[in-house]
């Protein structure tokens, strides 16, 4: 098991956002976290990424307890993430955005020049090679999403956390992203995504967990979970009559 979550709890004031959650994600799995707004899936994401401290429970990555580790230590262990609202290092060049990842992370490059060279390869992978010298702030949304992926990959992670990677993309862009993620899995990466885009999830995920009010109410293959009666009820409401 690459990632093991046991008994994870998080409350914000009066709201129990995550309630006693267990998750197992194996190597090279593409795992989806689904649920309506307020279900706690983003909170789970942030707990695994190290943005929020857990109230209770354990998060183990390759056997290492992540709970007390800040984000930069998790990155050094091999956990990378992207952001729901894309964040770039706007005034740095596209190359340097990725090169920073190559200089920190799990197996840092030996020099800034070396990092930039390796960054160029990653830009090729995500199809941004022609924008290499431009400031990152000048890219459009889809390009900045791909830049975020390249930057995350630059840290040579084992686990990639993707926060709504398909939000704001048109059908063609979604298809290209799905192909990219499949390719990343073939190269040995494990992916966990929080996502609302159901067709993308069906096309991409091996397994999904469906959360509601902080609890997991279904887990399994996307088709099975999405046709689970409780999931249908939560997503679409009780059937009439």
């Amino acid at each position: 098991m690459l990632l093991q979550v046991r008994g994870l709890c998080k409350r914000f004031g009066g709201v129990q956002a995550v309630r006693d959650l267990d998750l197992d994600v194996g190597e090279r799995e593409i795992f989806g976290l689904l649920g309506p707004n307020g279900s706690g899936k983003t909170t789970v994401f942030n707990l695994v990424a190290g943005v929020l401290p857990a109230d209770a429970g354990e998060i183990r990555f390759r056997g290492v307890l992540l709970n007390a580790l800040p984000p930069h230590r998790r990155a050094a262990l091999g956990v990378a993430r992207t952001f729901q609202l894309v964040r770039s290092l706007a005034r740095m060049t596209v190359t340097d955005n990725v090169a920073v990842g190559r200089l920190y992370g799990t197996s840092p490059a030996r020099s800034v020049d070396g990092a930039r060279r390796e960054a160029a390869q990653l830009l090729d992978l995500v199809g941004l090679a022609d924008k290499a010298g431009l400031p990152a702030g000048s890219l459009n949304l889809a390009e900045r999403r791909r830049l975020e992926v390249a930057r995350a990959l630059a840290t040579r992670p084992r686990l990639l956390l993707l926060d709504e990677p398909f939000a704001g993309l048109n059908a063609d862009e979604v298809e290209a992203e799905v192909r990219l993620f499949h390719r990343l899995r073939e190269e040995g990466l494990t992916l966990i995504l929080v996502e609302h885009n159901v067709p993308a999830v069906r096309a991409l995920c091996d397994r999904v967990a469906f959360l509601n009010s902080g609890e997991k109410i279904a887990e399994g293959r996307p088709d099975d979970v999405l046709s689970h009666p409780r999931v249908v009820e939560v997503y679409l409401g009780r059937p009439g009559g």
Binding site: H72, A80, G105, T155
Partner: peptide, 8 residues
């Protein structure tokens, strides 16, 4: 935040 995320 981004810097922290990549290991800085």
């Amino acid at each position: 935040w981004v810097a922290e995320t990549v290991g800085v």
